[in-house]
Amino acid sequence: MIKESSSDRLLKAIIYIVLSLFAIYCVIPFVTVISSSLSSESSILRDGYSIVPREFTLAAYNLIFKDDTIYRAYGVTIFVTVVGTAIAMLVTCALAYPLSIRALKYKNGINFYVYFTMLFHGGLVANYLLISKYLGMRDSIWVLIIPALVSPWNMFLMRNFFNSVDESLAESAKIDGANDIYIFYKIVLPISLPALATVGLFYAMAFWNKWFEAMLYISDENKFPLQYLVMRIMNNADFANQLSAKISLPNYVVPTLSTRLATTVVTIGPIIFLYPFLQKYFVKGLMVGAVKG
């Protein structure tokens, strides 16, 4: 065992302090969000946001969970996230791996082909026409999944990870008679776990947060994804506030400020638990395991 020098220990200590401070700095606003979502609307109006809930109330959450639609929305979003991420990872990795092979002749052509779409878009009208008129994907859950299956950004990231996989592995397997798909599937993928975890996480987050396509294409309430439904509840709370005020019902103040914060909590909850779970794949040395001996 090589002993750590004191300068090393100092560095480590500094790192611990910096990271802890930064973490606290990140958490405080978040805790404030949660607490304020549990505070009464009038206490927020009066005293602002606080780290501890004031005049504890579940009014904002009641508003959000007032009927079944929110549970259905959770279902829709979970389906979209799981299915979407799975298919997207398959397609993206299949696209990225060949592009990481140096010998592939047309790889730069394909690289350019994909990259170009990152910058140039046809605009909202063209997309709308394509999806709703020509592909008939209106009011279908798949409109949240299919168009998003290939994210150029994620693809390039994945390609970058594949680049760092030692090509000697693939070559030795080829000599043993394996074809490309076998190499990809049985050799490269298993040692790319941190990469898969990372890109998978990004895709999962993108699918989880989808709302724009829902806004444009989905009118069936039962197919609303979580983010979109929550956004509508939020907007309509503001809206209902104005309307109810016109007919001046006593004591009916729609909790708009606290609701906005509650919607944040409701929508990010599950995805936060995904990252810690994935962290077990971020273990050093996984990617180079097979080269030894």
């Binding site: 609307e41 009038s42 206490s43 104005q242 016109k246 001046s248 006593p250």
Partner: peptide, 15 residues
């Protein structure tokens, strides 16, 4: 004028 009720409600519930 159309804000009257809304403002009043918010006011009397918080203060």
């Amino acid at each position: 004028l159309s804000n009257w009720s809304e403002i009043r409600q918010k006011l009397i519930t918080s203060i």
